[in-house]
Amino acid sequence: MSGLRILVPVKRVIDYAVKPRVNRTQTAVETSSVKHSMNPFDELSIEEAVRLRERKIPVESITAISAGPPKAQDILRTAMAMGADKGIHVAVDEQDALEPLGVAKLLAKVVQGEKSNLVILGKQSIDDDAGQTGQMLAGLLGWAQATQASKVSVEGDSVTVVREVDGGVETLRAALPMVVTTDLRLNEPRYASLPNIMKAKKKPLEKKKLADYGLELGARLKTVRVTEPPPRKGGVKVDDVDGMIGKLKELGAL
């Protein structure tokens, strides 16, 4: 085996600490002037790829890829600052966002182009919560897959993955090539250090279009309506104990 050629897809999503708001027309979540960052599960993927290399496992290349608006390049730079060797940005307008199957088809093409033999991707993105891409990709490629990994070890051609299942853990082993999706307990992503942020600026970033991979846009799903969860009803403040007892009686609790 010549070494691992790892592909890590990353997605730019609304920062998980920001409260998403539904737009007025109830067609989507408001994304303009909202803080965005890398999907937390994708951070884990990058971190794991870099750790594999740091563990002296022969890693030939780590390529980060993102499909999205021009801003997605910021996320790719972050991925490179964390340790990816290069980035591929596939330009897709924000309003034409790809569906999981579309992403999987794109990744399948990229895997061929990059001759990747290991794809590490987040088990889901926190904006759509679809959680399908990894599985679809493995299906399209006909590769082995291990989802929700909490531990990944590589020995020669064989990859052992500990994954979280209901009520315990399951250990799987398969031969490369393989698709692994990451879960929260896998690792703790590093900070992007200043020297690495500066180095990342000089790393190659390829700019592509869907057409370069012979793909077209095409939505199979239609978003009918997006709504906020029902608001929690506010409580009532009472002045004193008597007030509280009165209120409880009124509500029939006493």
């Binding site: 998980y16 920001v18 937390p40 951070e43 900070y191």
Partner: peptide, 21 residues
């Protein structure tokens, strides 16, 4: 950041990439 790194004012540093960091 580049300025303070290049001029050896700071030895090392990190930049938070998201709200959690």
């Amino acid at each position: 950041l580049e300025h303070v790194m290049e001029n050896d004012i700071v030895e090392d540093g990190v930049l938070a990439q998201d709200q959690t960091q």
